[in-house]
């Protein structure tokens, strides 16, 4: 019995050592303004996918901003230099997340860390315009704006492909008799590109190319994957393929909602209306600095079928219909009313 206790003691002595830390070579924590600035700049150098598109010489940016960084500067000063440098990219997919409560989340489309849409509210549509309102697939609200105008609102594109199919199996046959359709993505912040690709298929008659993408594949700013072609395949029973569609957008239509717009705008029956989109198409993973702050950056170069990039400028509507925030607050959606009138004519 004594031997057993000794062996048990040895076993759990080993266990108590919890020696996993000694097996990891902890990298040096260069948590200083200079260390954090160098890491931030270097990560953009190694991973950012839009220097060529935006004609930015990142080495020159370093030459301008590095002298502004010094040891001993405050977090607020470091934040000011960093956000000033990042603003050059004019990229709504570049966001800095400080972990200091006094410093707001930063992106070119945020004001003091706040993103607030005043020119559109789905509740206004739902309460004052939408008839026979139904929901499907978790993100789709649909119904009728008049006897002959159908309506589909997509909240975001962060769902599974099967959710799109399930929803459109219900929506497409139900809107078969519509004279035209308003497809409303004015507050869709984005999601998965394949979801928009799948949804566009329900409006397509035949397979077509709508987007080309490539992403960074190495630390040299010219290192990219091969171009990847994105095609829309016709989906469903073709109920919506010949319907005139007004695709309604605003500057809050971003990311995956914009790649969906690229897919829809290749269709001849689709007209974009409302306001220009955000201009942030690429995927944007998160990374972390030595000080714990996090940031996202665009790693891709996303273009339309002809090879044109809309990063930083967005997709401008053919019909510029901007809502007055005061009208929206009062329950009026003038842009939607114009869309109904346009489709009814």
């Amino acid at each position: 019995m004594k031997n057993i206790i000794i062996i048990v003691g040895i076993c759990f002595g080993v266990a108590l050592c919890s020696c996993e830390d000694s097996l990891i070579n902890e990298p040096p924590l260069k948590n200083s303004p200079v260390g954090n600035f160098d890491l931030l700049w270097q990560d953009f150098h190694d991973y950012y996918g839009l220097f060529e598109v935006k004609k930015i010489n990142w080495d020159s940016v370093y030459a301008v901003y590095k002298p502004q960084v010094h040891e001993g500067m405050s977090e607020a000063e470091f934040y000011a230099v960093s956000t000033s440098m990042l603003s050059i990219l004019n990229d709504a997919h570049v966001t800095l997340f400080p972990t200091n409560p006094d410093l707001p989340r930063w992106s070119v489309d945020l004001e003091d860390g706040i993103s607030h849409q005043e020119d559109y509210k789905f509740e206004v549509v739902k309460e004052n315009y939408l008839q026979n309102h139904k929901q499907a697939g978790g993100v789709f609200d649909w119904g009728w704006l008049s006897d002959s105008i159908g309506y589909i609102h997509v909240d975001h594109f962060m769902v599974k492909l099967a959710d799109v199919d399930d929803a459109m199996k219900e929506i497409a046959p139900a809107l078969k008799k519509a004279k035209g359709i308003v497809l409303d993505i004015r507050d869709a912040p984005g999601g998965q590109d394949p979801v928009g690709q799948r949804l566009a298929g329900y409006f397509a008659q035949e397979k077509y190319l709508y987007m080309k993408t490539r992403k960074r594949s190495g630390p040299n700013p010219a290192d990219f994957t091969d171009w990847l072609n994105w095609y829309v395949d016709p989906m469903g029973g073709g109920e919506l393929k010949d319907k005139p569609v007004i695709l309604m957008t605003t500057r809050f239509t971003g990311s995956g909602a914009e790649t969906f717009s690229l897919a829809m705008l290749e269709l001849p029956q689709v007209t974009q209306a409302g306001d220009t989109t955000a201009g942030a198409f690429s995927d944007n993973p998160m990374r972390q600095l030595y000080n714990g702050w996090m940031f996202s950056l665009s790693v891709g170069d996303f273009r339309d079928a002809s090879g044109e990039s809309f990063e930083g400028r967005g997709l401008a509507p053919a019909l510029l219909w901007e809502n007055n925030p005061a009208d929206v607050k009062a329950g009026k959606d003038e842009a939607l009313e114009k869309a109904i009138q346009h489709l009814a004519e």
Binding site: Q192, D193, K215, S217, G300
Partner: peptide, 14 residues
């Protein structure tokens, strides 16, 4: 994940 850290591919869930 690949070098760029994103997974999106046409017609596929993540």
């Amino acid at each position: 994940p690949p070098y760029h850290g994103t997974l999106t591919q046409p017609n596929q869930n993540l």
